[in-house]
Amino acid sequence: MSANISNRSFRPYTGEKARITRAYDYLILVLALFLFIGSFHLHFALTVGDWDFWVDWKDRQWWPLVTPLMGITFPAAVQYVLWNKFRLPMGATLCVAALLIGTWITRVFAYHYWNFFPINMVLPATMLPGALVLDFILMLSNSLTITAIFGGAAFALLFYPSNWPIFGMFHVPVEQGNGQVTVADLFGFQYIRTGMPEYLRIIERGTLRTYGQYATPLSAFCSALLCTLMYTLWWYIGKWFSTTRYLNRI
């Protein structure tokens, strides 16, 4: 990091200047919050989509693979900006918190009040524990490599266990039509979705069959590997598309 201003000549702002910079902080923070609520929420809805919308899409294999992989994107880019330019280790937490605010607003107003789905059928997942750990690792390591490997992995590995206390109870079996389904499946059957036939769900499809019922840990580790790569990619996207040149004029 090059030092444009020498340490000795640095004078902290005081008085009116300090007040204005603080007001600027809040202005940027509020704008950033709205920006991330909108943009990250849109990105997440277009990529993770149904896996996060519906309780009967949250399977053991694809949900823990896809969600962290698409969820680590914006946090990585924003971490680059907030850490490298301001030494603020809160990029991931800020992004995921903004995502959750947007998601909850949508679920309550669009899905529940507008389209009549019970709110428990469209509960969002949380990635906050993984985001917190991602911020901690970046702050303590000050290293892209270490954060990508250990932070990215932690972000993926913590996803399923942090959500199981929320969604585990939807996996209790129910007898329906001479067969067994989960409570989540029953939601999908009972609460009619015109554009969501059952066969569209991607439930444990694929060749991950040789490890018995241990699909989740394998998916989580696969996601961890991919998250390290995705983190690095989006870190550089943050680097390429961010600038602080306007601050240099202040």
Binding site: N4, I5, N7, I28, L88, L247
Partner: peptide, 20 residues
């Protein structure tokens, strides 16, 4: 965690200090 950082001066002040 967010408030822990937001309570302090943020962008301009930290940018200047980092540059220094």
């Amino acid at each position: 965690w967010l408030l822990w950082w937001v309570r302090r001066p943020l962008f301009i002040s930290r940018y200047r200090m980092l540059e220094a």
